[in-house]
Amino acid sequence: MRYAANRPVWMEKPSPLLTVVKAATLATIVALVLFPFLVVVSTSLSTEYAIAQAGGVVVIPTEISFAAYEQVLFGGVVARALLVSIGVTGIGVVLSVSATVLAAYGLSRPDSFAHRPLLFTALFTLLFAPGIIPLYLTVKQLGLLDSYWSLILPTAMNAFNFVIVRTFFSRLPQELFDAARVDGASELRILLRIVLPISKAVVSVIALFYGVAYWNAFFNAMLFITDESKWPLQVILRLYGLQGQQLEVDPNQIPPPQQATQMAIVVLAIIPILIVFPFVQRHFTKGVVIGAVKG
C-alpha cells in the first residue's frame, strides 16, 4: 500500500486490529462533525410533506424543494440581513488586515524607535478584556450606537492576529530588505513589493480569522444596534431560527414549511465559511499558526 512508505523503517507494522479500531474512530469523528450539517441541509431542501413524514427533521431528503430559499433570498428581512453581514465582513476584513499588517511590519524590527513600549501596548491587551459595560459606554460616547461601524471598529484590531503576522515578518531574512533599503526604497514600498508577495499564506489565514469573526459575531449587534433594519444575519438567525419567530409571508402564496425556512437561514450562515475554508485550511499547518504559537 502507498501509505506504508511514509511509515519510518524502525516502526513496527500496525496490527490489523489497531488499524480497524483507528479507522472506525476516524469515521465516527467525521460522521459526528458532518451529520448535523447533513440534517440542516436536508431539512432546508424538503417539502412540507417530506418534513411531516420524517417527523420534523429530515436526514435524507425525499422530496426536494427550493421554496424555502426563494422565500428567504428574495426580499424581506433575511435578504437585508445577509447584505448587512456581507458589507460588514467585507469592509471589516479590509480594514482589519490593513491595520494588522501595517502594525506588524512597523513593529517587526527590534531596534526601531520606541519598539518596546509600542509592542507592549499591543500585547498587554491579550491579558484583559474591556468588559461589556465599559465597552458599551465607550461606543456610546464615540457616537457609534446604531451605526454599522459599531460592528466593525471595536473588534477591528486583534492582538493575537497581530502576533501571528509579526512573528512571520520578524523571521524573514533581513538580506531581503537590505538591498532595497540601500537603493532608497521606502518602507511602505518594501512592505508592498517585497514582503507581502511572500506572505500570502499568513495574510490569508488572518483574513479568514477576521472574516469569520465579523461574519459570526452576534452579541455586539445585539448590544449596539437597536434599529432592526441594521441587524446582521446572525441576529436574524437567532430570532427566526432559534426563538421561532415567523417570517412574514406573501398572502397570495402557500408558504414553505417553517422548519425549511429556519434551516435555509442556517445554511446561508454557513455557506460563506464552507466556500472559503478549504482554500485557507492548507496554510494552517504550513507553519503559519503553529510557528506563531511556538514562537
Partner: peptide, 12 residues
C-alpha cells in the same frame, strides 16, 4: 515604521 503602527494601535 512608526506611522504604520498608528491605525492599529489607535484602534486598540
Amino acid at each position: 515604521l512608526l506611522l504604520m503602527t498608528v491605525p492599529g494601535l489607535l484602534l486598540l
